[in-house]
Write a protein that binds this DNA or RNA. Sequence first.
DNA 1: GCCAACGTTGGC
DNA 2: GCCAACGTTGGC
Length: 136
Amino acid sequence: MNYWLVKSEPDTYSWNDFIQKNIDRWDGVRNYTARNNLRSMELNDLVLFYHSVKKPAVVGIAKVVRTHYPDPTATEPHTWVSVDFEAVRALTKPVSLALIKQQPVLATIPLLRLSRLSVMPLLPAEFEYIVGMELW
DNA sequence: GCCAACGTTGGC
DNA sequence: GCCAACGTTGGC
């Protein structure tokens, strides 16, 4: 089992948009590093859903219910891939980027080091730590 | 293969 | 709205 974090601009696609569908395709990724991470996702992997730009924060948890397949929205569908996520639950309270930045144990996560990467891995301990912060 | 120019992302 | 980071493009 692996752990991940994906980013979305809520103006484009928000957590609310996602839970209304319950299961939805994660498409439109056009960056090779992010694509490779999508390819590495396995069934039932857990994924943090992060809102970028506006009130940047982790807002919910999803899980992988279909592993990678050609992205139907791509003009080169053999280059880019999608996966399907199912909503698990919203965090009881969004965990803000500002708070994440204050945690020394999270200083090395890709969210902070590679600010433009939209699909990134997390260590199990990092995932659990961030989820635990919903109760702070 | 190098690197400058340019476009995009995303925090503030 | 500004700007830093960084990925991509294209000339040489």
